[in-house]
């Protein structure tokens, strides 16, 4: 009898095959973001000295996703954990992987201050406009009018503010040696290129690097495949500009190059 492993799909060497298929819902953006990360880790040949930290939220489902040393921390606290590791052992390549709630709400002070200190770490943040793991409540990135578990009549910007613009904020407060970009899982080659630049910035010892990825959550969006991609490409991009916001040595941008 043929076994499924006789037909293993191609996957990055830095992926942990034993935990595939992964635990994300079908159509989830997290797996695509992590594919980009896995391929970049392979290309840069840094698996042995990489430490992958993941947050609470659906990112935690990646606690054993990669074939690299990993630690799953508390909600919002992945940045300080990897900062501590990097400071203690600068030869490590450290990655903090999190959702929009983890990065922009409960852990916002850590994102802001580690960016201000130009910590030589890489932060990867999946923006799916909701608190997915807890059942789809409003996140800092929820779009105006979007219905969620805690905005059943749609997000009212008067009462709850506008969607958080993370890369714009990080670009505004970092020094010129930082790398800041926003990609989307719907443009994989571009997203992968951003992840690569982010890690290269850390490898070069230049400074902070931050990539936000627009990421689908069909489960909490209650969307089918077509609607998911259309929400990513047509709705989210009305608020979230794709592109590089800071490349080391250059001034702030925001244009998709």
């Amino acid at each position: 009898m043929e076994r499924i492993h006789d037909h293993d799909p191609a996957m990055p060497a830095s992926w942990n095959r034993a935990t595939k298929p992964h635990r994300f819902c079908p159509g989830c953006g997290h797996g695509i973001f992590l594919k980009a990360l896995g391929e970049v880790i392979d290309e840069l040949g840094i698996a042995e000295r990489t430490v992958f930290g993941c947050d609470i939220g659906c990112s935690l489902l990646a606690w054993d996703f990669l074939n690299v040393d990993s630690v799953q921390t508390h909600h919002g606290r992945t940045v300080p954990v990897v900062v501590g590791a990097k400071r203690a052992n600068p030869e490590l390549i450290v990655i903090a992987y999190m959702g929009d709630g983890g990065g922009y709400a409960i852990g916002a002070q850590h994102l802001v201050n580690s960016a201000m200190r130009n910590e030589k770490i890489t932060v990867l943040l999946a923006n799916n406009t909701v608190y997915a793991m807890t059942g789809g409540q409003m996140a800092p990135t929820t779009l105006p009018g979007q219905t969620t578990g805690t905005t059943p009549y749609g997000r009212d910007p008067d009462a709850t503010g506008q969607p958080t613009l993370g890369p714009e904020m990080v670009a505004a407060i970092t020094s010129n040696s930082a790398y800041v970009a926003r990609g989307s899982v719907s443009n994989y080659p571009r997203l992968k290129q951003y992840v690569r630049q982010a890690l290269e910035n850390q490898l070069a010892g230049r400074g902070f690097s931050f990539v936000e990825a627009l990421s689908g959550c069909p489960t909490n969006w209650h969307t089918n495949a077509k609607q998911t991609w259309s929400y990513l490409d047509d709705e989210m991009t009305k608020y979230f500009t794709l592109g590089e916001f800071k490349t080391p040595g250059q001034a702030e941008g925001g244009e998709d190059k």
């Binding site: 430490v51 921390t73 300080p80 900062v83 002070q109």
Partner: peptide, 16 residues
């Protein structure tokens, strides 16, 4: 930036 961060960074340092 705060004690949450100091505490968690300490854990990172130990883990490293």
């Amino acid at each position: 930036e705060d004690e949450l961060s100091a505490g968690f960074a300490t854990l990172g340092g130990v883990m490293a």
